[in-house]
């Protein structure tokens, strides 16, 4: 829609607290169209909370979100989905009793145009939509090499595979902004490379703006165009990956401790 002027997403002076404990304080940054923006920072820095604000699961205490030129004091989850904000969760939030294919098709729900009666009687429009949805879901599964799991109940699959299903479900409805919370967690390095490549492709080929949280700094620095470093709910630094890597504050506050954490 409004892709001409201004950034794709702007977070303005957003604060959030839980029962008096500040999770995010006065946070502002911008995400340009078609960029991959990585949020990094230690656990508890407020990264996931921020994503939850962006698609309406949490309501910020103050500040506002500007998405494609429109201002929001708060988002509603359904409204966010309708406006094209897709989301993958940190601890898989898949529908565990449904098959992989059904999980992905559920992501197309906002595009559904058939009525209950049409579906109950399998009228042509319902059948047509079902066929189109299945086709679209299969295409996305193919992208993640998940075809062989299509009919498997998702709760029975290994964590790394479930993460891929989550991303598939988030992008099946062709969002304009994709929020991913640790999309590579729990994967081995081959899987990480594979999924990182898919994310890069989505960004390039579908012109998808992506905000992601990731702990693997090596991959973040390669994948992201823009990195925002958070610590205790505040923005530490914000810039292209090259400047982040060499920033002494970041090395001291985040990279150092994170490496220590990983090594421990």
């Amino acid at each position: 829609m409004n892709t001409s002027a201004g950034p794709a997403l702007e977070v303005r002076n957003v604060s959030l607290s839980f029962k008096g404990v500040k999770a995010i304080s006065d946070l502002s940054f911008q995400v340009e169209h078609h960029e991959i923006c990585a949020l990094i920072g230690p656990n508890g820095a407020g990264k996931s909370s921020l994503l939850n604000i962006l698609n309406g699961v949490y309501v910020p205490d103050s500040g506002e979100i500007v998405f494609e030129g429109e201002h929001f004091r708060r988002m509603q989850p359904l409204e966010a989905a309708r406006r094209g904000i897709g989301r993958g969760f940190q601890n898989n939030a898949l529908f565990s009793g449904m098959s992989v294919l059904d999980n992905v098709i559920a992501g197309l729900s906002r595009h559904s145009r058939v009525t209950l009666v049409e579906e109950a009687f399998r009228l042509p429009r319902a059948l047509g939509q079902e066929r189109a949805f299945r086709q679209r879901a299969h295409d996305v599964l193919q992208l993640f090499d998940l075809e062989k799991h299509a009919e498997t109940i998702v709760g029975t699959l290994p964590y790394g595979v479930q993460k891929k299903v989550e991303i598939a479900r988030a992008i099946v409805a062709k969002p304009r902004l994709l929020l991913l919370d640790e999309p590579l967690a729990g994967m081995n390095s081959a899987e990480k490379q594979e999924v990182a490549a898919v994310i890069a492709r989505l960004n390039k080929e579908l012109d998808l703006t992506i905000v992601l949280i990731e702990h693997d700094i090596g991959i973040v620095l390669k994948l992201a165009h823009h990195v925002v470093v958070l610590d205790y709910g505040r923005k530490l630094v914000d810039g292209p990956p090259e400047t982040i890597r060499d920033n002494p504050d970041v090395i001291a506050a985040y990279l150092g401790s994170e490496h220590a954490e990983v090594a421990a």
């Binding site: 989850p77 359904l78 989905a81 565990s96 449904m98 098709i105 559920a106 729900s109 058939v114 988030a170």
Partner: peptide, 23 residues
């Protein structure tokens, strides 16, 4: 169909269902 998937999505995890666009 989509109706059944929406129902099961709500049953399995209603917050995620709303976020991915299930009404």
């Amino acid at each position: 169909g989509q109706t059944g998937r929406n129902w099961m999505a709500i049953r399995d995890m209603d917050t995620a269902a709303a976020v991915i666009g299930v009404p």
